[in-house]
Lab assay of single mutants.
Amino acid sequence: TKKDTKLYCICKTPYDESKFYIGCDRCQNWYHGRCVGILQSEAELIDEYVCPQCQST
């Protein structure tokens, strides 16, 4: 049987260590910077990140 692979981001793909991720400070989920429109250089300046799903609630 195929091992359950945890899926990340709004694009629902397995973790890829070569890509940049940003963690939501509300739901603790991880998102590709590219998918949520945040560059790694911008993320370093953000104190708290809230993902699109949490922003809409």
Rank of each mutant, 00 (worst) to 15 (best):
T1E: 07
T1F: 12
T1I: 09
T1W: 08
K3I: 12
K3C: 02
D4K: 13
D4A: 08
D4S: 13
D4Y: 08
T5K: 14
L7R: 08
L7T: 13
L7Y: 13
L7E: 14
Y8F: 12
Y8T: 12
C9E: 00
C9S: 01
C9A: 01
C9V: 00
I10Y: 06
I10L: 13
I10V: 07
I10D: 06
I10K: 07
C11T: 01
K12Q: 14
K12N: 06
K12S: 09
K12I: 01
Y15A: 05
Y15R: 08
Y15F: 13
D16N: 08
D16F: 02
E17K: 13
E17L: 08
E17R: 05
E17C: 05
S18P: 02
S18L: 03
S18N: 07
S18E: 15
K19R: 14
K19E: 15
K19T: 06
K19M: 11
F20A: 08
F20S: 10
F20P: 13
F20C: 05
F20L: 07
Y21K: 07
I22A: 03
I22E: 00
G23S: 11
G23L: 08
C24F: 02
C24Q: 00
C24M: 00
C24W: 00
C24R: 03
D25F: 08
D25T: 15
D25L: 13
R26G: 14
R26L: 11
R26F: 06
R26Q: 07
R26D: 12
C27L: 00
C27K: 01
Q28H: 14
Q28G: 12
Q28Y: 10
Q28I: 05
Q28N: 09
Q28E: 11
N29A: 15
N29K: 09
N29H: 11
W30T: 15
W30K: 15
Y31S: 02
Y31H: 03
Y31G: 01
Y31E: 02
Y31K: 02
H32L: 00
H32Q: 01
G33Y: 14
G33M: 04
G33E: 04
R34F: 06
R34N: 15
R34Q: 14
C35D: 00
V36N: 04
V36F: 01
G37S: 11
G37L: 04
I38N: 03
I38F: 07
I38Q: 04
I38H: 05
L39F: 13
L39S: 13
Q40D: 09
Q40R: 10
S41N: 14
S41E: 14
E42A: 10
E42L: 04
E42W: 03
E42N: 06
E42V: 06
E42P: 05
A43F: 08
A43D: 04
A43C: 14
A43K: 13
E44R: 12
E44Q: 10
E44A: 13
E44G: 13
L45V: 13
I46T: 13
D47N: 12
E48P: 15
E48A: 13
Y49K: 03
Y49A: 04
Y49W: 12
V50W: 08
V50D: 06
C51I: 00
C51H: 01
P52R: 12
P52A: 11
Q53D: 14
Q53W: 06
Q53C: 08
Q53N: 15
C54I: 00
Q55G: 07
Q55T: 07
S56R: 15
T57W: 06
T57Q: 04
T57A: 14
